[in-house]
Simulated assay, not measured.
Amino acid sequence: MWLKGELLEITSALYPDRRPMVVREWTDPVRLRDPAPVGHRFLFLLCADGDDRPTSPGFDDALNAFSAAGWTVQRRPSDHPGERGATAHREEFEVRVYEGSGRGIVTFTGWTPVVYTERHLRQPPFTPSTADGVLCDDCHGWGMCLECEGRPYSGGSGGYGRCLCAANNAGPGRCVECGGSGLLTAEETSWKRRQYGLPDTDGGDALRQMPPEGGHDSNTNAFISVSQRSCGCGEFRCFWRNILTEADDHLLSRFVGTCQGCAAQRSYTFTLPLRRLVAPADPPSPPPGPRSRRSPQVPGGA
């Protein structure tokens, strides 16, 4: 629970007037050959709602807060105008910091190293929530043959130090299905989406024709709603981006992301109330200075 407490302490000090929300807590299972997981990674998602006040803390302030708390911060370039991202590391813990476009939400996704229940194993390259893609169904993201678990194999005929099983006598180590990447290929993820009747898109937003939804009074509440929804394949894991724009007499908040279970493009749009900031009142005029104590001049006097 140290990571959760650290995230709450840093973000609450950064946003004292609008306490960040813990949006979701979950675990990523880590498997080998058996369906039962051998370990878990714990993850926490926090969110703070941005506003238009020039003095309101934002992305740079968040990174400074993590640096002051002893984290190593690394900014990451963004392919999307107006959005910014970075990662913060401390020992084996990691936090992904993201700020949406148009003074949208600021999110903090933190995760622990994988904790194993019995034997100690090395850390996997990634788990479902931290992978840039969909985990391979055969090796569960390890990228290695799970028969030899990436180790030299001394059994089999002759004992040539090769795995004679799933690695097709080319091991030890590499998973044949994904070529050692640990991720499904584009063709496999496309086939997986068709299994669930999802649009087989090669880009864009599969749900871009969905009309805007109402019923939320803030961008944070809209984000909480989105984070609890699952894809058509049943997976809820998705790194959400946010674009906040002004439209007529309301705000338009758009969330887009790629499902980490089947790579489907997901998108939701919400209408939010437009809260225009009142301009500060002019400062009061300074009080008049003290009057002169000199005697008044009498016209025509001596």
Rank of each mutant, 00 (worst) to 15 (best):
L3G: 02
E9S: 09
I10H: 01
A13P: 08
L14Y: 03
Y15M: 07
Y15H: 06
M21H: 05
R24M: 07
R24P: 05
R24D: 15
T27P: 02
R31E: 00
D34F: 09
P35S: 04
A36D: 15
A36Q: 14
G39C: 02
G39F: 00
H40L: 10
C47P: 01
A48D: 04
D51E: 06
D51V: 03
D52N: 03
P57G: 02
D60H: 09
N64S: 13
A68Q: 13
A69I: 07
W71Q: 02
W71R: 04
Q74N: 14
P77L: 05
P77K: 11
D79C: 05
D79H: 15
H80C: 06
H80V: 15
P81D: 09
A86Q: 02
T87H: 02
H89S: 06
H89C: 06
H89V: 08
R90D: 13
F93D: 11
V95G: 01
E99P: 04
G100L: 02
G100C: 09
R103N: 15
I105M: 13
V106I: 15
T109W: 01
Y116M: 05
R119P: 04
R119C: 08
R122L: 14
F126D: 03
P128C: 08
P128M: 00
D138A: 13
C139I: 07
H140W: 02
H140F: 02
G141Q: 03
L146H: 00
E147F: 07
E149K: 05
G150W: 08
G150T: 14
P152I: 14
P152F: 05
S157V: 13
G159R: 01
G161K: 00
N168R: 11
N169Y: 12
A170P: 13
G171N: 02
P172M: 02
R174V: 13
V176L: 09
V176S: 10
E177C: 08
G179C: 04
G179S: 07
G180Y: 00
G182W: 00
A186K: 06
A186F: 04
A186R: 10
A186Q: 10
E187Q: 08
Q195M: 10
T201A: 12
T201W: 03
T201H: 07
D202E: 09
D202P: 12
G204S: 04
D205N: 12
P212S: 08
P212Y: 09
N219S: 12
N221T: 11
F223M: 08
F223E: 01
I224F: 11
R229E: 09
G232K: 00
E235P: 10
R237P: 12
C238Y: 03
C238E: 12
C238M: 04
W240V: 10
R241Q: 11
N242R: 04
T245H: 07
T245I: 08
A247H: 15
H250Y: 14
H250A: 10
L251R: 06
L251K: 11
L252Y: 06
R254C: 13
F255C: 09
V256Q: 14
Q260T: 08
Q260S: 11
C262L: 04
Q265Y: 13
Q265P: 08
S267M: 08
F270D: 06
F270G: 03
R275A: 09
R275P: 12
R275I: 04
R276P: 04
L277E: 12
L277H: 06
V278F: 14
V278Y: 03
V278M: 12
P284N: 06
P288W: 01
G289M: 06
P290Q: 12
S295P: 15
Q297A: 10
G300A: 01
A302L: 14
